[in-house]
Design a binder for these strands. Structure first.
Lengths: 345, 345
DNA sequence: CACGCCGATGTAATCGATTCCATGAACCGG
DNA sequence: CCGGTTCATGGAATCGATTACATCGGCGTG
């Protein structure tokens, strides 16, 4: 592979001049510039990003560590992150933690070794020493979706409180009174918050959230199935199951079907996180939709602000309720249900 | 951040010795080794991968350029690729081409600039000059899923011929005679092959595949919807729609529902690519399942063989038919329908 | 006319590793 | 006791860029 020296030789100038042309430094003669450009073309030269990074101490690369790539929510997040980063001249390296703290650490370490300029994390747990150290050591970092309290790192997330209140109102108006929730891991902020939001909303309607109606899941489908089976075995099963993420909702749907029960006739189902597939399930599932794309873009902007020396800002965007048929009764204004909710760039 | 020099100073040895310890070169005294290790620990030293790559001319990184991250098939592929690469000591940088040749080129260029050790590609199109040049220039490269004919690059893919024949047999036995297909882009091998396999299988049953029953899609949901509407508008609409990928099947399902028709009573539906969600749609969708995880792992192994100087091998694995309810009648042996078909590592 | 400044260019140091080569000590067999 | 190995170690070159500094010619101005 041709190096800058070869280009210099071909163009009959020094490497310094070649470098100046490539980084369009002002003081280069028009003549030298054209000769260098010609040489670059002739040799098919491309600057070695590795060498450049070593010298400049910046890689123009962002790390993104997400909890689970197979979860469509995170896939969409990753997509919008990459899109915005590209627009700002950065590349993204994605690490999939698979909800495993050890894998999360592996990726954080690898990314740090590669000297990425900044790190976007959706933590699987309460935070490993490694990550906390990195944050303290001054690695530009932003939490997205989930975060770790007590760490001086900007957070970009969505607030589901309002949407959950709307959901409970919807459920209440349909006559449901016994509402259960499949919670996410207590180690995650989203795992805790969604339960709290649900509990508070219930309280507004004078409803309690008994312990028996709180199932402990782990954001994976299998746990949704298991917890739901527990609910159905109760002497007085809930009338509604609210899953704290989309995968667990799927597991719940499975468990319900396996008993030969029908949604929403026998039991209602709702989920946190809306995904395109919820339109196509039987029945279409009512969900709390996060502004995923906007979240990803805002997170990148915050991180790049931090990297480039501007003050980064935490951002909280509201989620909204999308009513479909899984809780009973048709919505007054049926939504258009777009096949593809992708933001073309 | 501490460098190797700092470690050397702290341990009272030269940088050469530190480097030897880190790469466990045999001729280092036990004493020096412990002192270096202590210094590494004390300073929290981590080798700079950028500097190392520059010197050794290898990054221990693989590039993966996929056609569409939002397609669960590719997400699963990406996951297995990363998993196997990690096991072999490599990292993976994923580039999402979004079925756009220009984006594909952007990612290939960026990855090449970063001097990745090898490239895994599922090409969106017939192959840009950039990619062909890279292949000719000797960049270790492997095609996965889709490939480009006439290029000297190993291919890891699955052969759907057998499964498609099984599908047609299944459809025929259910009494269906008018079968239509939503094809993928003709620029992709998978786009062309699936139509051919379908046509050949039909021929075995003495059935033709008229042009009116071949719709041109682009592997995205919207095209599936559009094509299906065309089919339904035909004076003699097909009895079965076979979508060449999962996203287009979803679009088809949409279009069918929008007309108030029911699957499989009014029209049958089948898809290429099985995904976890097909279990949960209404009705569950019959599909041709690729051994996605195995494909990803085999692709990585082939690429790493090539990188490390062993002869790489092309691999073709058979796909298989998964019968569900979208084509009519219950399967004789209902499958267990696992909630999560993830291979835990 | 001379001085100083500016623009264009080249030389060389530098980033943080790896690794070739030289050096010196220890050790072995004759 | 000496020449030849072997082992541990350090010095310095190197990878491919960027960039501070030096140099030099030309030009404007007092």
């Amino acid at each position: 592979m041709a190096s800058i020296k070869d280009v210099a030789a071909e163009a009959g100038v020094s490497v310094a001049t070649v470098s100046r042309v490539l980084n369009d430094h002002p003081s280069v003669s028009a003549d030298a510039r054209t000769r260098v450009l010609a040489a670059v073309e002739a040799l098919g030269y491309r600057p070695n990003a590795v060498a450049r990074s070593l010298r400049t101490d910046q890689t123009r690369t962002l790390g993104l560590v997400i909890s689970d790539v197979l979860n469509p929510y995170f896939t969409e997040l990753a997509r919008s992150v990459e899109e915005e980063a590209r627009a700002l001249g950065y590349s993204v390296i994605i690490g999939n933690a698979d909800e495993r703290p050890d894998l999360q650490d592996h990726h954080v370490r690898t990314l740090l070794d590669r000297r990425i300029d900044g790190l976007l994390v959706s933590p699987t747990d309460g935070g490993s020493p490694l990550m906390l150290d990195a944050a303290r050591a001054g690695t530009p970092m932003v939490f997205v979706d989930r975060w770790i309290p007590g760490v001086e790192v900007p957070v970009v997330r969505s607030d589901g409180r309002g949407a959950v209140r709307d959901l409970v109102a919807h459920l209440h108006s349909l006559g449901h009174r016994r509402l259960a929730i499949i919670a996410g891991p207590a180690a995650t902020t989203t795992g805790r918050e969604r339960v709290e939001a649900f509990r508070e909303a219930l309280a507004e309607y004078g409803l309690a959230l008994p312990d028996a109606y709180i199932g402990q899941g782990d954001f994976q489908a299998e746990s949704g199935r298991r917890v739901t089976e527990g609910f159905l075995d109760l002497p007085e099963p809930p009338e509604v199951v609210f899953a704290a993420d989309n995968l667990m909702a799927l597991g719940a749907l499975d468990a319900i079907r396996a008993r030969g029960l029908r949604v929403p006739r026998d039991i209602a189902l709702a989920a946190f996180d809306d995904i395109p597939w919820f339109v196509h399930t039987d029945p279409p599932i009512t969900a709390v939709a996060q502004p995923t794309g906007e979240l990803g873009r805002a997170a990148v902007r915050a991180l790049v602000d931090r990297i480039e020396g501007r003050p980064p800002q935490s951002v909280t965007l509201p989620a909204r309720l999308v009513v479909r048929r899984s809780c009973g009764e048709q919505p007054a204004f049926p939504e258009p249900d777009p096949v593809q909710n992708r933001s073309q760039s």
